[in-house]
Amino acid sequence: MKKYETVTGRAIPMNRADVDTDQIISKEFLKRIERTGFGPFAFDDWKNDPDFVLNNPEFKGAPIMVTGPNFGCGSSREHAPWALEDLGLKAIIAPSFADIFRNNCAKIGLLTVVLPQADCDYLISRSEELNSAELVVDLATQTVSTRDGSWTRSFQIDPFVKDCLLNGLDEIGLTLKAADEIASFETKRSPLYPSTAALA
């Protein structure tokens, strides 16, 4: 996982509440065996509406999404964060997230930012009115601001999640931090038990 860096760019105004994981990525697209390639199928059903925000070329490649409460509810499919990441998103801002979805995002380096409803409403309206307006999401300082600096808000994040994101540590990376301790344990482990050491 890459180290998380400050994100600057347009914000997709997804002005909807209770966006569930089945809408983010429909079940018919879950047959892929790779973790990549899901982006083109994100919100596939909603794309049938010509006025759907992702059909607007102004938001193509935008790294930030601002949306309504309870984003990512529904099933626990990991494919939903994968699809959003593959779509190009680096940060999602909402009043609240489904817990499992938020944890799945953290595991792949996709930042979820909780801001009050009024702040999300402001950012959505700003993005809808000014397609070229850009936001800055700074994980190190835990702030979201407009690029011109006229508006700034702070957000909270679990310190462990923040550390993992800033240092690019997924579950494998966290395990490898203890590689020396694991190797030492293996040398003292009884030969009666199966070895977990890598084969040469």
Rank of each mutant, 00 (worst) to 15 (best):
E171K: 01
G168E: 08
Q142I: 14
C120G: 02
L139Q: 07
I172G: 13
Y122P: 05
S154L: 09
V114T: 08
K177T: 13
L174A: 04
I108D: 07
V113W: 06
C120M: 01
T152M: 10
A183N: 03
T146G: 08
F155C: 10
T152I: 14
D119I: 08
V114M: 08
K177E: 14
L123M: 11
D119H: 13
E171G: 01
V144Q: 01
L165Q: 02
D180F: 13
I108M: 13
E134G: 04
L165F: 15
D170T: 03
L176I: 01
S127C: 09
C164Y: 08
G149S: 10
V144D: 04
P116I: 10
T112Q: 06
L165P: 04
L174G: 02
D158T: 00
S127L: 01
L166S: 01
L110H: 05
G173R: 00
Q117N: 06
T175N: 04
L166T: 01
E171L: 13
R126K: 10
L115R: 00
S125P: 11
R126I: 07
S132I: 12
D119V: 11
K162T: 11
S145H: 02
N167D: 11
F160M: 08
K177D: 11
K162Y: 08
D158P: 15
T175I: 12
G149P: 10
G149F: 13
G168W: 11
N167F: 14
R147G: 02
L111D: 02
L110I: 06
Q142G: 13
Q117A: 10
A106V: 08
T152L: 09
C120V: 07
R153S: 14
W151D: 03
I182K: 00
R126A: 13
Q156W: 06
A178P: 06
S145R: 12
L110W: 13
S184P: 04
K177Y: 00
D158F: 10
D138M: 12
G173T: 10
T141F: 02
A106Y: 03
